[in-house]
Amino acid sequence: MEKFTRLDALVAPLDRANVDTDAIIPKQYLKSVKRSGFGPNLFDDWRYLTPGEPGQDHSQRPLNPDFVLNQPRYAGAQILLARENFGCGSSREHAVWALEDAGFRVVIAPSFADIFFNNCFKNGVLPVVVDGAVLDRLFAAVAAQEGYRLQVDLQAQQLRTPDGESIAFEVDEFRKYCLLNGLDDIGLTLQRAEAIGEYERRRRQEAPWLFA
């Protein structure tokens, strides 16, 4: 996993609540057995005017000019602003793979769906929860000022705006540690192999039917 420490990047606004994982990456792309290559199909149904299929050359499909992320001023954005309950729906990690593949490393929203939130941390993407009033201000600032950027400092748990304001955010200690160091948590868990084995021996006595 790629480390995440700090980022200074362009911000793109997606002003919709309940953006679901089917919208983030439609099901036909889940047929891939790979972990990469989902970027061109991020928000596929909103982004293009024609339906898409895996394997197609997506650069040839007509773009929907009304979709906000297609506006040239947001090209290269790495921070996405969104509304409540971002990433609701399925467990598909492809949703995070698509965001990451399209260049996004941070999603800022007032709330996230649990599984999506969790999946972000496994892929070096930082979901940042800010309250509604702060978010409204950020949306307004992005709209008002072309090229609006934010600094994200994970160590300090702060967003910094161009006019010098600092916005603190919460992040779970363990997840922060993994993200800062780009750690694979399977390796960490396997350091506890003995405790797992111990647990299994005890459970086998208590509830042998679980091991049939």
Partner: peptide, 22 residues
Amino acid sequence: FGIGTSEVEHVLATQCLIQKKS
């Protein structure tokens, strides 16, 4: 409960998940 693919790999490899209580 449902998990992402990284967690599928984690469970396959360790029989465990790293979680916080809801």
